[in-house]
């Protein structure tokens, strides 16, 4: 039986073509997606959104660049250390809940307060934000790492 991967032309897929339209558009769209990702990230907790969705969107913005260019160019544009991103994310999302023991409350108990800023007005501040930042970084880093591993050569 002939291999499905071979039939799909797997060995040839890796050579990328230079599509000027895609490359130009993705540079612009990248910023829109990243902004939307951060919007979703900050909207979380009280309204739909949060670290996971935001992280996925941020990763997908980078993946768009990865599709338009190749890995080397992407690394030149944005130097990413997957290991550091994932580890920092995991560390944040584990350390923040653990710190709540210092305040005599159980694991994962969060504190929140409201902050009065001059221009922006009242802003809710929540310790879950730090936890969510950890989720954001982990999800973004892991997704990027997976796509890069599948896309690229052995690493």
């Amino acid at each position: 039986m002939k291999s499905t991967l071979k039939k799909a032309g797997y060995s040839r897929v890796q050579k990328q073509m230079h599509d000027v339209f895609l490359q130009f558009t993705s540079k612009v769209v990248f910023f829109i997606i990243i902004m939307f990702a951060f919007n979703l990230f900050f909207a979380g907790h009280y309204t739909p959104g949060g670290g996971f969705v935001g992280g996925l969107l941020a990763a997908s913005a980078l993946i768009l660049l990865l599709i338009a260019y190749d890995r080397k160019t992407l690394f030149k544009m944005i130097p990413i250390d997957y290991r550091l991103i994932i580890t920092t994310g995991l560390f944040l999302s584990l350390a923040v809940p653990t710190l709540s023991f210092l305040f005599g409350t159980p694991f994962l108990t969060h504190q929140h307060t409201y902050l009065q800023l001059p221009v922006l007005g009242e802003i809710p501040l929540h310790s879950a934000l730090l936890f969510d930042l950890g989720v954001f970084l982990t999800v973004a880093g892991t997704t990027l790492l997976m796509i890069a591993l599948i896309e690229g050569e052995e690493s």
Binding site: S3, M146, L149, I150, E154
Partner: peptide
């Protein structure tokens, strides 16, 4: 995603899918 990565590695090593 992990399974896909393993499958690609398996395909490269064993030469079959």
């Amino acid at each position: 995603a992990f399974l896909l990565a393993v499958a690609i590695k398996t395909y490269r090593e064993l030469g079959t899918d």
